[in-house]
């Protein structure tokens, strides 16, 4: 087998083409992370890391953050997959309208979104009033200012991150494969499950990883919709940086978060590599 088949040949143009993005990455990612790292060990020891990893507050907040990120990713998947499917099979007009709605949260400030959720989900919100009027409940449901509220708010914002990768993969799936499956004796459901779903898994994993990792760093939504009771690690970092000026500890916590995010993303990739070979 020739070298050309085994990998990229390392000739001039390839290196030149790789240099610019590499510099960008170095400048915009590696350098800040290195600076962050230097803050975290500013005392010449790992005291900040030790505190971040042993202090009950930070451990609890880390666990809560992971839990919320997982739940948000799971809900986004459950909602996003059918949504992406709907958009993928919709006519261009309906797809455009769908995307506009999907992207609405991006164009709305977090405060406006929060008020919108209050109007909908608040104690005197539309939903609670309707349910009370219908006699379905006799106490308003606590849908805001707790973990439920945070999850609802985060799912709203992050849904597009799930939908887009899945949608783009779905659009690339050869529809003829579904026809082929049906021609070979599969019911539409079987064709969907056995052929369509496996072929869209790369999009699912891309979306889930994206949503999960972004969730880990969320801080405005949990601060506003969590009623103060839901502490995610981003909120904690923000407090350390802005309020306490404890940049060393903030950096240590941020690095642990970064490592966790990278680790989980790498783990997902590794777990799924065997299954993603067709893409």
């Amino acid at each position: 087998m020739s070298a050309g088949l085994l990998g990229l040949r390392r000739d001039g143009p390839a290196i030149a083409m790789g240099t610019v993005p590499l510099l960008f990455l170095l400048l915009l990612f590696v350098y800040p992370v290195a600076r962050l790292l230097s803050f975290s060990v500013e005392g010449g020891n790992f005291a900040h890391f030790e505190k971040a990893l042993t202090d009950g507050l930070y451990v609890q907040v880390f666990l809560e953050t992971l839990r919320i990120a997982l739940i948000v990713a799971a809900i986004c998947l459950v909602l996003g997959y059918p949504l992406a499917y709907g958009l993928a099979i919709a006519s261009p007009l309906w797809a455009t309208i769908g995307f506009a709605f999907l992207l609405l949260p991006f164009w709305t400030s977090v405060l406006v979104r929060t008020y919108a959720w209050m109007i909908l989900l608040g104690r005197n919100g539309l939903l609670n009033r309707t349910l009370l009027d219908l006699g379905i409940i006799d106490q308003p449901l606590a849908l805001l200012h707790n973990r439920t509220g945070v999850i609802i708010g985060m799912v709203h914002v992050l849904l597009p991150y799930m939908v887009f990768p899945i949608y783009s993969v779905m659009r690339r799936v050869d529809r003829q494969l579904l026809s082929a499956a049906e021609g070979l004796g599969a019911s539409p459901t079987q064709a969907f499950r056995r052929v369509f779903v496996p072929l869209t898994l790369p999009g699912v994993f891309a979306g889930a990883t994206l949503v999960f990792v972004i969730s880990l760093g969320f801080f405005i939504t949990p601060a506003l919709l969590g009623g103060g009771r839901v502490m995610m690690i981003g909120v904690q970092i923000e407090r350390l940086v802005r309020q306490f000026l404890d940049w060393g500890l903030a950096a240590a916590v941020a690095i642990i978060l970064l490592a966790a995010a990278l680790g989980i993303a790498a783990l997902l990739r590794r777990l799924l590599r065997g299954d993603l070979t067709w893409s």
């Binding site: 050869d174 003829q176 026809s179 052929v195 496996p198």
Partner: peptide, 9 residues
């Protein structure tokens, strides 16, 4: 099929 439509996965 024209392009065989084999299931790639």
């Amino acid at each position: 099929f024209q392009n065989y439509a084999l299931f790639p996965h």
